[in-house]
């Protein structure tokens, strides 16, 4: 089991092409932790905006009557991938991991696999 800071650092260090990673509380839209990002990539903005994405999807599923849960969400941009992975452990209820990747430097399948592993070991 790893804590938030260690998990975010591991994601940033071990996933190829990572631009920034954040652990976000989607009940409030605020980030519990961020690593990477910077002047050109404000992870606080990303946390608030992607909270709306997650909430919209959850609401849509509810309207469709789907008794299911979101495992992850992939958003493909021209030059980046954005991956959102909801925490499934009881302690991580209402949280998601968010990672932005440089499309040219990353391996999407590998990134998704690594993020799943990091999420499984994350203890909030």
């Amino acid at each position: 089991m790893a804590n938030t800071e260690a998990s975010l650092k591991e994601a940033m260090g071990s996933i190829d092409g990572a631009i920034g990673v954040a652990l976000v509380d989607y009940t409030s839209g605020m980030a519990l932790g961020t690593v990477g990002g910077g002047k050109n990539f404000d992870l606080e903005v990303a946390a608030a905006g992607n909270t709306d994405v997650v909430r919209a999807k959850l609401r849509t599923m509810e309207h469709l009557g789907l008794q299911d849960e979101i495992e992850d969400i992939l958003i493909t941009l021209g030059t980046q991938y954005h991956l959102i992975r909801l925490l499934r452990a009881k302690s991580g209820n209402g949280l998601f991991l968010y990672i932005a990747l440089d499309a040219g430097k990353s391996n999407l399948a590998m990134a998704r696999h690594q993020l799943r592993r990091i999420e499984a070991h994350l203890e909030v």
């Binding site: 976000v24 409030s28 839209g29 605020m30 980030a31 606080e44 903005v45 946390a47 608030a48 905006g49 909270t51 709306d52 909430r55």
Partner: peptide, 8 residues
């Protein structure tokens, strides 16, 4: 409300 967005 999304407090993160409210703050931004």
């Amino acid at each position: 409300a999304n407090v993160g967005r409210l703050h931004l």
